[in-house]
Amino acid sequence: MKKARPTPLEYTRKRWFQLVMLFNFIFLYFPIVALVAFSFNNSRRNITWNGFTFKYYVKAFHNESLFDAFLNSLIVAGISTVVSTILGAMLGLALYRFKFPAKNAFDGWIHLPIIIPEICMGVAMLAFFSRLNITLGLFTITVSHIAFSLPFVAVVVRARMAGFDHSLEEAARDLGANQWQTFKDVTLPYMMPGVVAGALLALTLSLDDFVITFFTSGPGSTTLPIKIFSMVRFSVTPEVNAASTVLIVITLILSVGTMVIQARGGKDKGLPI
């Protein structure tokens, strides 16, 4: 069928514009795609394709310190996600629900961990723990991860609640529910997609974090990003590519999951998922 000529604001139908966008997407994806592809390359010098293999995944899996680091990452991320989701969701709900004096300032303060340079927070945590003579390890990593994940959860939950129809709560109260029942039966079901999205975000942030972990980890508490860092400082090996690919796939699943939940949460207007 004949297509009408592009109109002035249909930028995506203009040839030169498509080229700019194509360049951007190649720029964004080529390095990652190459990294993933060459984790399956049957050659140590990963520049030419020598056939498909899983052997670097097997190797990475049998690399004990790498595997330990992976387990450490899961432990830290698991605990950090649970704690930061609960605290962050409560905070997000409070920010949606209450007005109190100096709320703008409070808001700015709560969001600081999101915005300040990671290196500043990293060295601050290091100074803090060493001042208190707390040995660096999984505990200190987890505590720090909770501190920077919590505000993200609060932001996501609060954004979710922004679309909530407050009269639903009033209706519940009007029909005789007490405060807790109202929360449990009306508010929480609506809030849930935001909480789940916040939890997935917290999990991703924790699994991904390098800088703050770098300053709060001790000798026996290497996480996966720290381990990968120490490996890539020496050389580029397919084994590292394999380990990286595993991490990419995990975060990819988590992030797409988050977006699907948020998109669906927007559509069904708050039915429990």
């Binding site: 069928m1 004949k2 297509k3 009408a4 000529r5 592009p6 109109t7 002035p8 604001l9």
Partner: peptide, 23 residues
Amino acid sequence: AGFENPTTGRIVVDGQDMQGVDP
């Protein structure tokens, strides 16, 4: 006005064919 273009057909304003003329 020129914000959409016809799939088929012509629009003539004051004797001038508007095909390909930007808004």
